[in-house]
Design a protein around this nucleic acid. Structure first.
Lengths: 266, 266
DNA sequence: CTATTTGTAATTCTTTGAGTGACTACAAGA
DNA sequence: TCTTGTAGTCACTCAAAGAATTACAAATAG
């Protein structure tokens, strides 16, 4: 009885979603069975039989399995679509509760400053993408975006880009021509170019794919630059605001030198 | 320094969403500050100063806070909308991965049976609602639904009910007249009635609000009956399929006695 | 009626996370 | 130069949660 790797995957994800190991194993086990008893399940999943009962009870309370109270009890997993929908609902509720709670709290007003040299670091592709969206939506004059990796051109980003107001210059660079074509097709209103920023790529390491992630310059006063860790693929970004911000100044200088085109794509 | 209760709430929910206590406290702390150092945060949140760093690192990796690498380091929380969106994204990804993994697995075909006396139990409002939706969508002739508690008449359910095919008899009962009016307004195509099932309510306990949750009979061959625990408010349901199923037979008998109207609302 | 299966419960072992203190680095002031 | 306070990292303890095992009573099958 070997365990296919997608079974392992499913078990892991379920744990990330908050289930205990036994619960996860049992649920996946039931997903492979039309219906099962504690004994069968225990054999299939290596969960000690005597613990199957507890695990199943928890799963039932979460709406992920059904129990038939006969003897022996029969268990079965809720159909996949129903299960995922239920999980979604659960998390949606939680996020909403979080939102409401935090919304009614905010700011213990400390006498706070906003010096100009602030440069903030953040991580995580989702978070960086959300920030990117926010910045793009707030632009009033000019958006310069350089995309360093195909994987960053998500549906969501494309959607945000296509919603940009007509009066705003939208300039998008890529590191390769195929990607440029792709961008131009996805975002017809944009002016695209192939970036002269190849030097931002890993220089000395050989297989160092994609050092730069994205570069976003909004109204020449807000900048976000990200890179992708070659090993973990995690995206990391730094972010600076304000016309006088050091990073922003550097970016403007790059632009002046033509390395980032402004309105005249090379 | 007291902690408002919505702060507590937020911390709890964040933990349910997978954060550790310190991480949750730090994030909420930062949400109350424009910007903070480890020291300030530690004072505000009671997280030991030396542990703030670890917690923040984790939060940063998840895209929930930004770090300014100065000395002392400054931390700040990502704006609320961004944070919730990032969390949503994260869970959406997980649920999707789960779906994909389980989709490619399924059934270790065991010689399985489908006797007719199966009655399954399930729990959880979300799960029961999803099942209700599924059943309604699969109906071909007749839907009889009795709603025992206002809280069960969700947007989602109304939507599902309004998508029911025209050729299908849709009969909805409630326990009170006001609720009937509400239903009739929300689902114009339905035939509504006030149920003669008051006896399903808690009989001997005094404050036993709402014993019956919902009762759903599909094509006279599939039935789902739920109740709401008076203490926990948790919804529990039993569910039977097949024309010969004992539960279903009982339901048909009730109908024959006019307790559940079929096509002639009282 | 006995032997097995089923279900509950108590018990140990392991891991994780909360809480604390020791240690290094550094900058400001004496 | 020496002292002192703050920032940051690490390593350690203790308690709680979870994994794994065992003991035992009730139910079932042969």
């Amino acid at each position: 009885m070997d365990t296919p790797e997608n079974v392992e995957e499913a078990i892991e994800v379920l744990q990330q979603l908050g289930l205990k190991e036994y619960e996860a194993r049992c649920f996946v086990g039931l997903s492979r069975l039309n219906t099962g008893t504690a004994k069968k399940l225990s054999e299939l999943t290596e969960v000690p039989r005597t613990r199957v009962y507890d695990a199943i009870r928890v799963l039932e309370a979460q709406g992920l399995v059904e129990i038939q109270h006969s003897s022996p009890q029969q268990f079965r997993a809720v159909p996949l679509e129903e299960a995922t929908e239920t999980l979604r609902d659960q998390y949606e509720e939680r996020v909403e509760r979080l939102h409401d709670a935090l919304d009614t709290v905010d700011v213990v007003d400390e006498g706070d400053e906003s010096p100009v040299q602030q440069i903030w670091a953040m991580a995580g592709q989702d978070a960086i993408e959300n920030r990117t969206d926010q910045l793009i939506e707030k632009a009033t004059n000019e958006i310069v975006l350089v995309i360093g990796d195909e994987s960053l051109l998500t549906e969501d980003l494309v959607e945000t880009l296509n919603e940009v107001d007509d009066g705003i210059d939208l300039i998008i660079g890529t590191l390769t021509e195929p990607l440029q074509d792709q961008v131009q097709a996805a975002v017809p209103d944009a002016t695209t170019f192939v970036s002269g920023l190849e030097w931002l790529h890993g220089e000395y390491t050989e297989e160092d794919d994609t050092a730069i992630g994205r570069l976003l310059l909004i109204d020449r006063s807000t900048i976000l630059v990200s890179s992708i860790m070659p090993d973990t693929k995690e995206e990391q970004a730094i972010f600076g605001e304000g016309f006088g911000n050091g990073l922003v100044v550097i970016a403007r200088r790059l632009m002046a030198q033509g390395l980032i085109p402004a309105r005249d794509p090379q």
